[in-house]
Design a protein around this nucleic acid. Structure first.
Length: 213
DNA sequence: AACGAGGTCAACCGCGCGTCG
DNA sequence: GCGACGCGCGGTTGACCTCGT
């Protein structure tokens, strides 16, 4: 384990790297008794040889009781795509709309699974398609799950959900998917922002507990 | 079975902002 | 007004895992 040094006065050994079960227990017990905040003094008072920053990160990203673990659901994927298209890399802001998910988790998810496809030309069309589905469907959760599950399971983000909404071909030069514009079907009136919000509100009433301002 | 490449994710780092004395 | 401090955010790193050859 790498050892760091405090900058001030008396040198004190600081632990870095992965947290042990014992450290997790100490931090959890301390916060349950005294609450969070004042992380630097918290670390000292709890007897942890960690920086306040490290304690805060460990608590917020891992130990907090309401941290939700496990796979990102289709609905969460849609929200991440939608909110990122709106706000960019504002991970903490995006995370506020996915209860139990941390900004770090969303950031990692985006960078490892989505980013390399984010600039492909079908992405805006996919978002538009989902918006339309959300806007026009009375079974929003099912519609989203169907659309995105097909997309994820069959293509691993490497191509748009062509089987359900459009045709396309793989560009010989770089393998990127190219949509054939003319085969896009005409959907009902393009969704308005209000329609999208209504759809997400619908989702929130179906137990997903997600919402948008 | 062994090895390398690529993916995943917890943790760290640097910076900027707000607050307080 | 200014410096110290605490905190939060986004970017990056590196250890570990998985998968293909």
């Amino acid at each position: 384990m790498e050892i760091g040094k405090q900058q001030s006065g008396v040198e004190e050994e600081l632990r870095r790297g992965p947290w042990t079960v014992e450290e997790d227990l100490i931090l959890t017990n301390y916060i349950s008794k005294h609450g969070e905040g004042r992380w630097n003094s918290l670390a000292k008072c709890a007897g942890l040889k960690r920086t306040g920053k490290s304690c805060r990160l460990r608590w917020l990203n891992y130990l907090r009781p309401d941290v939700r673990r496990g796979n990102i659901t289709a609905e969460e994927q849609f929200l991440i795509l939608e909110l990122h298209s709106r706000w960019g890399n504002r991970w903490s802001k995006i995370a506020q709309h996915l209860p139990g998910r941390t900004d770090n988790e969303i950031k990692n998810y985006w960078r490892t699974r989505v980013q390399k496809h984010a600039n492909q030309q079908w992405m805006p069309r996919l978002l538009e398609r989902i918006r339309t589905v959300v806007d026009s469907s009375n079974t929003i959760s099912n519609a989203l799950n169907t659309t995105l599950a097909t997309w994820n399971d069959n293509s691993k983000f490497s191509s748009p959900p062509v089987t359900s909404c459009c045709n396309g071909y793989s560009d010989e030069r770089d393998g990127a998917w190219v949509l054939e514009e003319e085969v896009w079907p005409e959907f009902p009136t393009p969704s308005s922002e209000a329609g999208l919000l209504a759809g997400l509100w619908e989702l929130s009433t179906m137990g997903s507990n997600m919402y948008v301002e």
